[in-house]
Design a protein around this nucleic acid. Sequence first.
DNA 1: TCCTATTGTGACATTTGCGTGACGAGCCTT
DNA 2: AAGGCTCGTCACGCAAATGTCACAATAGGA
Lengths: 232, 232
Amino acid sequence: MTKAGKTVLIVDDEAPIREMIAVALEMAGYECLEAANVQEAHAQIIDRKPDMILLDWMLPGTSGVEFARRLKREDRTAELPIIMLTAKGEEDNKVQGLEAGADDYITKPFSPRELVARLKAVLRRSTPQGIEEPIEVSGLMLDPVCHRVTAHGDPIDIGPTEYRLLQFFMTHQERAYSRAQLLDQVWGGNVYVEERTVDVHIRRLRKALGESHEQLIQTVRGTGYRFSTKAS
Amino acid sequence: MTKAGKTVLIVDDEAPIREMIAVALEMAGYECLEAANVQEAHAQIIDRKPDMILLDWMLPGTSGVEFARRLKREDRTAELPIIMLTAKGEEDNKVQGLEAGADDYITKPFSPRELVARLKAVLRRSTPQGIEEPIEVSGLMLDPVCHRVTAHGDPIDIGPTEYRLLQFFMTHQERAYSRAQLLDQVWGGNVYVEERTVDVHIRRLRKALGESHEQLIQTVRGTGYRFSTKAS
DNA sequence: TCCTATTGTGACATTTGCGTGACGAGCCTT
DNA sequence: AAGGCTCGTCACGCAAATGTCACAATAGGA
């Protein structure tokens, strides 16, 4: 489920180090941004909206700690996970770093493997999914927490894509969506697939729902599809 | 928000430090026990049953690491969360500490705020529910007190990790968990392990459960796993 | 009614995700 | 030191899931 690889912003004043880290992370499937100082970092954050920040302790101008503190203070960036990088021998500052709002702390030199591992752990913690209530429509129930679909209590077996499709429909009832919109919302923006693929998945979903509920997914000829309890 | 304040055992040979920590924790609503050495600590654990342990790295006689390892080995105390305390400059030993079974690790000097924060985090993920009643699901029984699993009365032999995994599943039925979530909940947040490792342990657990019960652990394609009595 | 644009449907090759056995490292007991 | 145990990782293979196509079915306008 490699949605889109998460984006990591690397802030360090030494280009070779940035590069090294970037290579390691890209091999692990992350997208990397780089910044040599606080100004660049700030621009990147606003512009590219990374999912987390690798922040060197020592920076020209504003120090890393200060920058971290600033980010945590701003609403817009308060939730951004930060991992502080520090050279060995600066361990005194660990407490400061963590208090400033860093989510983890790693000492140079470090192995790429360790870096990636910590990164994963931090990302894992900081991305809780929204509160998800079961949705029920005329006997058809989708429970996001259990990741399960049932019709009058009986489990229905569908693939991941059909699940996402159904979830989208059930949270957006009564409205017609074009194939392009569905691809955007269910498949995710930057994927190239034929629009007719939507038809196939609609079919699979209808089949899985069975005669009792397939009517909920209505064809809007010339436009797309709609999920509705009312007959068309 | 939860029941009564948790009890924390502070193990350190320097009385002033114990005192300082105790004051900080009591202000945060915890009850504190103190021990200057391993013998005292052991007595306190048996006698007062603390909910977690703050363990200094350096101790007269048996070292903190060794003590931690011993606690993790004994069934009776294996689940007790431990936070190791260490003076600055001993960071090399961090890995040793964590591997010995410590759930977290904190370097002196530290701020009371940091200590309390880590303590909360560790407690949160180690004992969501305090007293441990046996859990039984369709003939499969897990008894936390005896640290034993039986299927229709016949004992099942599984390793510690599989035990924790099963315990987590049985206390969190029906809900689907991603591999990342399982790593967090079962392995502990500060451990860096491949996600696929979860698969392997799932397999080992299923195998141990046998045909009669392996169906309880269901694969949720593209998402993770789920423990449920209902068929998928 | 016929025609055409649009959608339904089954089949197919490819991709992806998971199950599985094996292996080596570390720890504990002997 | 040796042997057993548990653990994390890897590589391989299978099966589900996916995207695409070709063709059938359908609707709606002329």
